[in-house]
């Protein structure tokens, strides 16, 4: 029995304007992300995957089409709602980690809590926040590096801190934009194993964007993107191969 849908995209269109010429990037994308599964979005570099993810994360607005999160339309929701959605409902990890260089690992993990709460409520629940941040760092195996700055960490470590940060506010959905794109194969595998483990043990829903067919093949669901369109209909595989492949 299929699990409930967390995120839906319908007829998303997006084009960039360059010298008065429209460059269409997305030409009507439909997408579904189901709870508790790893959904892979695979496509060549430049096919519009990141653009799509930005629309799904409400970092950008589509020219046409709609995005629903748990049945509620969010692409045209008020700014405050979208800010809250990004802060609270989803977690994002990027190819280039995007940690704040001035903050230590633990402070980076705490950042979403600081952003989402007022100064007062943050202080009130400070020890709770701290415990949660430490637990998240522990979850990604980096508690011993809590005081280190991003500049003192390797790429894989930074990505794991970024994952801990994305998990800080206990999101319903994790958006990962080529999380292994900047890592060597070995480290990339580690990250993938970590994500698989999160899915297995914490029942986390993941939308994984990648250009690597091998990684895509290991996902529960795989969408293929080409020239701004989702071409192949996804086949929900009966036996989730992701965990076994990665393991």
């Amino acid at each position: 029995m299929p699990t409930p849908i967390v995120l839906t995209a319908r007829g998303l269109k997006k084009s960039y304007h360059k010298d008065r010429i429209d460059v269409p990037v997305l030409r009507g994308v439909d997408l579904e992300v189901r709870q508790g599964l790893v959904t892979a979005l695979v496509g060549r570099s430049g096919s519009g995957k990141s653009t799509l993810m930005h629309l799904l994360a409400t970092l950008d607005r589509p020219d046409e089409g709609e995005v629903f999160f748990r049945g509620n339309r969010i692409d045209n929701a008020p700014r405050a709602v979208r800010d809250r959605y990004r802060n609270h409902e989803i977690g994002i990890i990027f190819q280039f980690y995007h940690l704040l260089p001035e903050l230590s690992a633990i402070e980076n993990v705490l950042a979403p809590a600081m952003i989402g709460q007022s100064v007062w409520s943050y202080f009130k629940s400070r020890s709770e926040n701290r415990r949660r941040a430490e637990a998240m760092l522990d979850r990604v195996g980096l508690l011993h590096r809590a005081k280190h700055r991003p500049s003192e960490m390797s790429g894989g470590e930074m990505q794991r801190v970024a994952i801990a940060r994305a998990l800080m506010t206990d999101p319903k959905l994790l958006l990962a934009d080529e999380p292994t794109g900047n890592l060597d194969t070995e480290t990339g595998q580690e990250i993938l194993r970590l994500l698989a483990d999160l899915k297995e043990r914490d029942n986390l829903t993941i939308l994984m964007i990648t250009h690597d067919d091998e990684i895509a093949a290991s996902a529960d669901v795989c969408w293929r993107m080409q020239d701004g369109l989702i071409h192949s209909e996804p086949g929900v595989e009966e036996t989730p191969a992701f965990a076994t492949h990665a393991a």
Binding site: A80, R86, N87, H98, L99, L100, A111
Partner: peptide
């Protein structure tokens, strides 16, 4: 600039 983008991705408002 990148950090500003990151903060916004983490849910920070323009005012923030």
């Amino acid at each position: 600039t990148r950090d500003i983008g990151t903060l916004k991705a983490l849910g920070a408002s323009g005012r923030g």
